[in-house]
Design a protein around this nucleic acid. Structure first.
Length: 478
RNA sequence: GGCCCCAUCGUCUAGUGGUCUAGGACACCACCCUCUCAAGGUGGAGACACGGGUUCGAACCCCGUUGGGGCUGCCA
C-alpha cells in the first residue's frame, strides 16, 4: 500500500501555478484553468505563478509563448512570478534524473515504440511490459523509465473529486526522459513543483491519470512522507459533441473572441461560471466579486459545454454595465484595431459620442458597433441588398422619400421635429410611422434596422441627409 | 481492450434525505412596450438516464446497468 498522505494543513500562503505548454494558440480551456488558479491565489492571499512547460523543444514556438502572455494580460491575470521556462532549467532535471537513476528508481530502456506496441498487442495487459526492467542498461543512449512498485495503490486526494485510487498493477513503467537525455513533462513538472514550493495543483481533469505517476515521482524525490501539494482537477470544457475542446477542430481561440469584440471582464465572468457557481446564485459578477466568492469546494464535477450564445448575452450585459464615456473609450480602442468601412480621416468623435447612447443598449459585442455607426463616417451609403429590395417592394417608398426630401429641407433640425414631420408624412400616406420610416432609414443608413432613426439623423448635417434621400430616390427611379 | 472520471430542462447550473407539484440563467415561444432592431417587463414550454437497494421518506446515500468523456506517446 502506498497511500499518499493527505496534504498537511497549510500554514503558509498558497502557491499555485498555471503551467501551459506553448504548442498552439491560447484557447478558452487554458484561460479557464489560468483563471481558477488566479482566483484561488487572489482569494487566499497566495501567489500565482506562470511556468512555461516547453521541455519539448521541437514543438514550442516563440509566437505561442507570446500568445500566452498576451492572453493573460488581456484577461488581467498577471502572474506574480514568472514566466519560468523549463527550457532554461534543464540542469535541475538533469540532477533529479541522475539521483533517481543512481538510487534505482529509474532504469534504462532501449525498446522502440514499435517494439513495445508489437509485443503488447499479444499481451492481455497493454502498455509497456517491463522488458528492460532488470537488464541493467546504462543511462547513456537509453530512455529512462520509472519503476512502478509491484502491488499496492497510490491514492490521489483530490479537492474536487475526493480520493481516487490507482492500483499499481494497472500502471506501466512510464518514460521520464528521452534516449537523448531530455526530460519529459511528468519529470520536469514534478521537479519544478517541488522546487517552486507549489502548494496546490489546479489543472484540467485530463491530467488526473498522470497524477499518481507524479506522486510516485514526488515521493521518490522527497521521501515517502513528502508533503504533497493539494490537487484539484477541474472538469473539462467540451464541444457540442461532448468532446474535450481541441485547438484543431473547435473555434475556441481566445484571440478570436477578442477580435470579435468580447470584453475581457465578460470572458472572465463567463469562464468562472463554467464549472463553478456563486454561493449566492449571482451570475453577473465583477472581478472583485469573483475573488470574494471563489472557492474550490463549489467546483462542479461534470464537463461543461462552452456556449457562445450565453457568453454573448453576458458580454451584452457587461457592455450595458459600462457608462457611456467608458463604453466610448473601450469601443474606440477596439475599433482602431478592427476592419472598418470608413476612412479614419473622416471619423468624428463628436458624432461618435452622440451615437453611443443609442448603440450601447443594442450591441452584444463591440463588433456590432461598426454597422450601427458606419453611416456617420462613410462618404456614400452602401445599401444592404435585402433592405433595398424591401424598399423596392414598398409601393409608397418613392412618395415618402420625396415628401421627406421636401419637409426635411425646412423643418427644425432636431430628433423631435424630424420624428413629428415623418409622422405627418406617414399619416398623409395612410400608413403607420413604422412603415413610413423604413425607406428613410435605408436612405440614410443603408439598412432597414438600426438605432433610433431620428436621433441618428439629427446627428448628421441637413445637406447630408437631403443628398442621401436624393441618392435613394435616384436608385428607385432607375 | 485496460485504468480513471462523469451523469438535474437543448445549454450552464441551484439542490448535500422531508420546505422539490425541482429554483435561476442562456436559448426558444407568446404578449406588453415601441419609429425599425434591441434592451426591459410579463407569461409559457422544457430536466432529476435506467434498475435495484437503504430509509417512514430519496434528485440527494449504496450497488449495478446504460450512456458520455479522459488517459493509455521517447507530447503536454
Amino acid at each position: 500500500m502506498n497511500d499518499s498522505p493527505a496534504p498537511a494543513t497549510l500554514t503558509t500562503a498558497p502557491r499555485v501555478r498555471f503551467a501551459p505548454s506553448p504548442t498552439g494558440f491560447f484557447h478558452v480551456g487554458s484561460a479557464r484553468t489560468a483563471l481558477y488558479n488566479w482566483l484561488y491565489a487572489e482569494a487566499n492571499g497566495g501567489t500565482f505563478i506562470l511556468r512555461i512547460e516547453d521541455t519539448d523543444e521541437e514543438r514550442g514556438r516563440q509566437e505561442w509563448l507570446d500568445g500566452i502572455i498576451e492572453a493573460l494580460h488581456w484577461l488581467s491575470l498577471e502572474p506574480f512570478e514568472g514566466p519560468y521556462r523549463q527550457s532554461e532549467r534543464q540542469g535541475l532535471y538533469e540532477q533529479a534524473l541522475s539521483r533517481l537513476f543512481e538510487e534505482g528508481w529509474l532504469y534504462g530502456c532501449n525498446c522502440s515504440r514499435d517494439e513495445v506496441v508489437e509485443r503488447t498487442r499479444h499481451n492481455k495487459i497493454p502498455g509497456y511490459d517491463g522488458k528492460c526492467r532488470d537488464l541493467g542498461l546504462p543511462r547513456e543512449g537509453n530512455a529512462l523509465r520509472f519503476r512502478i512498485p509491484t502491488g499496492g495503490t497510490t491514492t490521489v486526494h483530490d479537492l474536487v473529486r475526493g480520493d481516487v485510487e490507482f492500483p499499481h498493477d494497472a500502471m506501466e513503467d512510464f518514460v521520464v526522459a528521452k534516449s537523448n537525455g531530455n526530460p519529459l513533462f511528468i519529470l520536469a513538472n514534478v521537479v519544478d513543483d517541488i522546487d517552486m514550493n507549489m502548494t496546490h495543483v489546479i489543472r484540467g481533469e485530463d491530467l488526473l491519470p498522470s497524477t499518481p505517476k507524479g506522486i510516485l515521482l514526488w515521493q521518490a524525490l522527497e521521501g515517502s512522507g513528502a508533503c504533497l501539494p493539494a490537487f484539484a482537477h477541474l472538469p473539462m470544457l467540451v464541444n457540442e459533441k461532448r468532446q474535450k475542446l481541441s485547438k484543431r477542430r473547435d473555434p475556441v481561440s481566445l484571440d478570436t473572441f477578442r477580435e470579435q469584440g468580447f470584453l475581457p471582464e465578460a470572458m472572465v465572468n463567463y469562464l468562472a461560471l463554467l464549472g463553478w457557481s456563486d454561493p449566492q446564485g449571482r451570475e453577473l459578477l465583477s472581478r472583485a466579486e469573483l475573488v470574494g466568492s471563489f472557492s474550490i469546494d463549489r467546483v462542479n464535477h461534470a464537463p461543461a459545454f462552452f456556449d457562445v450564445a450565453k457568453l454573448t448575452h453576458m458580454n451584452g450585459e457587461h457592455i450595458r454595465a459600462l457608462d457611456a464615456e467608458r463604453f466610448a473609450g473601450v469601443a474606440l480602442d477596439w475599433l482602431r484595431t478592427a476592419d472598418v468601412p470608413w476612412e479614419w480621416a473622416d471619423f468624428d468623435m463628436g458624432l461618435f459620442s452622440g451615437m453611443v447612447p443609442l448603440v450601447i443598449e443594442r450591441v452584444t459585442t463591440l463588433g456590432e458597433v461598426v454597422p450601427m455607426v458606419d453611416f456617420l463616417f462613410t462618404k456614400n451609403v452602401v445599401f444592404d441588398e435585402d433592405s433595398l429590395e424591401r424598399v423596392r417592394r414598398e409601393t409608397a417608398a418613392a412618395a415618402v422619400l420625396r415628401q421627406a426630401r421636401s419637409r426635411y429641407e425646412t423643418c427644425a433640425w432636431s430628433a423631435g421635429e424630424l420624428h413629428q414631420v415623418t409622422q405627418e408624412i406617414a399619416e398623409a400616406e395612410g400608413m403607420k410611422l413604422g412603415r413610413a420610416q423604413a425607406p428613410v432609414r435605408v436612405a440614410i443608413t443603408g439598412r432597414r434596422v438600426g438605432p433610433p432613426l431620428f436621433d441618428s439623423m439629427a446627428l448628421l448635417a441637413r445637406d447630408v441627409v437631403l443628398s442621401r434621400l436624393d441618392a435613394l430616390i435616384a436608385v428607385l427611379g432607375s
